[in-house]
Design a protein around this nucleic acid. Structure first.
Length: 390
DNA sequence: TCTGGGGTCCTAGGACCC
DNA sequence: TCTGGGGTCCTAGGACCC
């Protein structure tokens, strides 16, 4: 059996635990500080009751509830809490999987009394952090994760041989992790409406209609004692940053300034994790061009912000002379590996020393205390075009 | 008040090699 | 000159999750 722990309205609950003024009030956590131009990252249960939930534009949330409390997301608080919860789970001595920032899975095949264990864990979390968790128990991670949603918030659900069919029959298929909008439509056209319908379909039926995903779904649904294979944090496959501007622009210097800033942010994180990247992806969006991305593989791996910027700019140059209006910009690096060789040339060695020193200064004096002058105005205002020259 | 930002996995076609 | 088949890497985009 797998025990899946899912924190209730994690970010919002943490903010309420820290600031008593927010307790009991409808609250949303937004992914950025501009409360009218963001989306809901987490909603407190008081807000959820009004019909507000993650993914909703904040403007719509405020229309529903004008006196909504707003807090911009502060990842460091959530990461800290998540790690502390992990520390609290380790002493149980069970195999542990860190599924995401607010989800944890335990292999409890040796545990005699899973419900007692669930109660114990939930009590410890509440005592230590004044936030609640919901727990799901089932024969594999996918069903355990589904079960954790059934009695939210602050609840427990256990799927056993005897109650499995009855429970699944009352849950819509789209509640299952991995079944989104498009898959739901396909399934509905096949007459598969509930999780039980899905559970009873054969591997060949699912694979025929949903491809490899369908086959994986079948395997995950019927597996025993299996963890989710998401182990993102161990070895990241890509590192990226993106930004949506307040309005579309075609000012080249302004776009270059943002491209450089995003490249520097990506490079900093690569160096932090002692990684270099061979592939650069450039994402662009705007009213005239929609949303698209292009990538290019380079023979030399890099974690130098300037180099990554040059590569991104090279990809952008393919658009040609007529620069369309740009609203969305993203830079992502992939094909990651550890730096292989010591620098061959003096210049290269100097450059690496410079980057290391910059990283040390920023680590000591705070986020980007020192940065390339070109992004000075970009980062200060987000609205003033920077110089056209680099 | 009108849509963020961080990711993963999969697919399918093209280029190229043997 | 025309043609098979296996394989890898690259690229763009879709679907999905937190």
């Amino acid at each position: 059996m797998i025990l899946h722990i899912d924190m209730d309205a994690f970010f919002a609950s943490i903010e309420q635990a820290i600031n008593p003024r927010l307790k009991g009030k409808p609250l949303i956590v937004g992914s950025r500080a501009n409360k009218m131009r963001t989306v809901v990252c987490a909603a407190s249960y008081e807000a959820k009751r009004l019909g507000i939930d993650s993914g909703m534009p904040s403007a719509e949330a405020f229309r529903i509830c004008p006196h909504l409390e707003f807090v911009p997301a502060d990842q460091s608080k959530y990461i800290w809490t998540s790690r502390e919860i992990l520390k609290l789970l380790e002493p149980y001595g069970l195999q542990l999987n860190y599924a995401s920032i607010d989800e944890f899975q335990l292999d409890i095949r040796e545990t005699r009394e899973p419900l007692k264990l669930a109660a114990d864990i939930r009590k410890k979390i509440e005592e230590n952090f004044r936030i609640t968790a919901s727990v799901g128990i089932a024969k594999n991670w996918l069903l355990a994760k589904l079960a954790s949603k059934l009695n939210k918030p602050d609840g427990v659900a256990m799927l056993t041989e005897s109650n499995l069919a009855e429970t699944l029959a009352n849950v819509a298929a789209e509640k299952l992790c991995g079944v989104g909008q498009s898959t739901t439509q396909t399934l509905q056209s096949l007459g598969v409406l509930t999780c039980l319908d899905l559970y009873r379909k054969s591997a060949s039926f699912l694979s025929q209609n949903l491809g490899k995903f369908g086959l994986n779904l079948f395997v995950s649904l019927h597996a025993e004692d299996s963890f989710s294979d998401l182990e993102q944090d161990a070895n990241p496959k890509s590192v990226g940053h993106s930004y949506t501007l307040p309005w579309p622009t075609k000012t080249p210097g302004f776009i270059r300034g943002w491209l450089r800033l995003l490249s520097e942010m990506v490079a900093e994180r690569l160096r932090q994790q002692e990684l270099t990247a061979k592939v650069v992806h450039l994402g662009l969006g705007g009213p005239e061009i929609g949303h698209f991305s292009a990538q290019k593989t380079f023979s030399q791996a890099s974690n130098d912000g300037y180099e990554i910027y040059l590569r991104a700019a090279k990809i952008m140059a393919k658009i040609g002379q007529n620069m369309p209006k740009i609203r969305f910009l993203g830079v992502t690096c992939s094909n990651l590996s550890s730096p292989e060789y010591a620098p061959l040339f003096k210049e290269q060695e100097k450059r690496e020393r410079l980057l290391k020193t910059v990283d040390r200064i920023n680590h000591r004096f705070g986020d980007r205390a020192i940065f390339p002058a070109i992004i000075c105005q970009t980062r200060r205002s987000g609205q003033v075009p920077v110089s056209d020259t680099l």
